[in-house]
Design a binder for these strands. Structure first.
Length: 624
DNA sequence: GCAAGGTC
């Protein structure tokens, strides 16, 4: 009898895709007891090498199998002082709703010679791999464990991965295990401390959970930070020199190289010198081709940012809609950090699927008839998923409003990626007038290319400049001082917040939207709609509670030697750095957990000791 | 009643 190999993927969709490729399309599907999404696919496959022809069961988990929690005697909020959670025993258990999935793996392992792990090739995937391994070993202690390394589900790539298995990366799995333990202990300890202490301060806090999390607090911090910058803003007056020339019936406004200054007397003096010189001299005339680059292949973070900005849909809704489109098979997997297309993907074939569309079908045809360009490659590759792209054409009538908008965006973005840059011709003229330099520029858009399909971006021809010769002199038609005021920054918008989170390593592409939803849910921030119609913007404003928490914690740590506030992204960044050290083999999981806990424990003890400052901040904003 | 990370 052929040897049996058990394969386990991270999610049902991957199990099905891999089974389809390995089996050549003919496999048997079996439902499992207790879970409607996970299926077992059975087929034969020749793994080559020492494995040869095997009978295969391909199945999956649904993300993590297990969760970490405190031992039962520490679960009650009054069972121990919150600080005890830094040391309290923890245990890893299979989540209640995952028990049938774990049981399926144990059962299948019993008759298998080997386990091939097909989880995503990222850190979390490596950890999920160890969870799968533990179940398989519980069913069959002697099972051999291998890992398939793959970065997309293109056929040849999957076959190659099946025939060249590697080992699980214990370092990466350990890094995730460290993160899980730290998030639990620190999150629970601070959440209980501040909830128990602050509920009594103000009536509106009475029944509230006032949570702390290493991602949600820095997220709140960004919102509060901007809020204070808006509140504390004082407008300043500035002055500038405006130079205008009328030539060939065109008015040319020259912009000052110094832009503006805050000293009126100085600007007046400089203008005097210009006027005294009478003649301005053209020091430079440049005419060069300009181009506006087509966008990069679409990542999750970009989808969320562009979605909030252009489609006016908040990031969490965007992800829900994108997932629905993915589940229906209309677009590729929507959680990806990759902004480069793998060479193996047949992009032209994907473009062809869009021919039937009324809105961009003709554009797609033009691409195939010669205008197609290989997309630009960004710097990110998560080695697990391709950039987000349409998989097939969908009639707009079979989608709801939001689905239609998101699908349209994904398609237009994809076609834009496969197009040429927009091209134009730019003219720059620089003049010297007195001791000052000014310049004017004109743009003529020659070929719109990707802009024709990517309607979200604009690039317009500006007024054309009249003719100038280098070295010529002229007397400006007008030269005078203009006055202006600096304007306050706006409150933070969701796309800006996502950008900040991304830049500071707060959350992952899949969770950033959740953290934002969480701080809304906890009533740390509210959404305010500014403007109307096409100019409508949703801005995030902290509530009194949100401001009180950030100010309170900032006060708690101010004056401390390290003075690292919980509202700043630093601590989370540090955790990320430690995880990378585990991945590199430079530190062990235990070292990192101990060191990080020590660091947070210090902040925790200070918070306890100076809890009055936190309470005072809450009183200041919530009672008075 | 706590976190953040997977995914349905």
């Amino acid at each position: 009898m052929a040897r049996k190999i058990l394969c386990v993927a991270e999610k049902p969709a991957i199990a099905r895709a891999v089974a389809t490729h390995l089996s050549g399309g003919s496999f048997q599907t079996h439902a499992i007891r207790g879970n409607q999404y996970v299926k077992n696919y059975e087929f034969e496959f020749n793994f080559g090498g020492s494995w040869g022809q095997c009978s295969v069961t391909m199945t999956s988990v649904i993300g993590h199998l297990t969760g970490l929690d405190f031992a039962s005697q520490y679960k009650g909020w009054m069972s121990c002082p919150p600080g005890a959670l830094f040391e309290a025993p923890v245990q890893e258990d299979v989540d209640k709703d995952k028990k049938p999935i774990a049981e399926n793996i144990r059962n299948q392992a019993r008759y298998s010679k080997a386990l091939f792990i097909w989880t995503d090739c990222d850190r979390e995937g490596e950890h999920i791999g160890t969870e799968v391994r533990n179940q398989a070993k519980a069913g069959n202690a002697r099972i051999e464990v291998k890992r398939a390394r793959f970065s997309n589900t293109e056929r040849a790539h999957v076959l190659q991965a099946a025939r060249a298995p590697v080992e699980l990366d214990e370092f990466q799995a350990n890094a995730v295990a460290a993160r899980i333990e730290l998030d639990l202990r620190i999150g629970a300890a601070f959440t209980r401390l501040q909830t128990l202490q602050l509920q009594a301060v103000a009536a509106i806090l009475k029944e509230k959970v006032i949570s702390y999390g290493s991602c949600q607090f820095p997220t709140l911090g960004f919102v509060v930070d901007r809020y204070f910058r808006v509140q504390n803003f004082k407008p300043e007056t500035f002055w500038s020199i405006k130079v205008m020339l009328e030539r060939e019936r065109k008015k040319v406004n020259f912009l000052w190289r110094r832009v503006h200054l805050f000293d009126r007397a100085a600007v007046t003096m400089m203008l005097e010198r210009c006027l005294k010189a009478k003649q301005a001299k053209v020091t430079k005339v440049t005419q060069k081709p300009k181009s506006k680059w087509r966008p990069l292949p679409l990542t999750t973070v970009d989808l969320q940012m562009m979605g909030s900005r252009f489609l006016r849909i908040d990031s969490q809704t965007i992800m829900k809609v994108a997932e629905a489109l993915y589940t229906k098979g209309f677009i590729s997997y929507p959680r990806t950090e990759t902004d480069q297309f793998d060479k193996a993907i047949d992009l032209k074939k994907l473009v062809e699927t869009q021919f039937p569309d009324d809105r961009w079908g003709q554009y797609a045809k033009d691409l195939i008839e010669g205008k197609f360009r290989t997309p630009r490659s960004g710097r990110n590759n998560d080695k697990a998923h391709p950039p987000i792209h349409p998989v097939c054409w969908v009639s707009p009538t079979s989608l709801n409003d939001n689905e239609r908008k998101v699908y349209e965006f994904v398609v237009r973005r994809f076609l834009a990626c496969c197009s040429d840059d927009a091209k134009g011709s730019g003219t720059d003229v620089e003049i010297q007038y007195g001791d000052e330099f000014f310049h004017a520029s004109g743009l003529l858009v020659l070929e719109r290319n990707y802009l024709d399909v990517y309607v979200y971006e604009k690039w317009e021809s500006s007024q054309q400049l009249p003719h100038f010769e280098r070295g010529e002199t002229f007397e400006p038609t007008e030269a005078n001082i203009s006055e202006g005021k600096t304007t306050a920054p706006n409150y933070l918008t969701e796309p800006e917040l996502i950008g900040l989170m991304d830049a500071n390593g707060i959350g992952t592409d899949a969770t950033m939207a959740e953290h934002i939803a969480k701080i809304k849910d906890r009533q740390y921030v509210v959404v305010n709609k500014r403007g109307t119609g096409r100019n409508k913007v949703e801005e995030l404003i902290p509530t009194h509670l949100g401001v009180a928490l950030v100010e309170g914690y900032d006060n708690v740590v101010s004056g401390l030697p390290s003075s690292i506030s919980l509202s700043k992204p630093f601590l989370r960044k540090e955790m990320e750095k430690q995880m990378l050290e585990i991945c590199a083999g430079a530190k062990t999981r235990q070292d990192v957990v101990q060191q990080s806990l020590d660091m947070y424990r210090e902040v925790f003890i200070h918070t306890q000791r100076r809890i009055e400052m936190l309470k005072a901040a809450c009183r200041k904003y919530l009672v008075e």
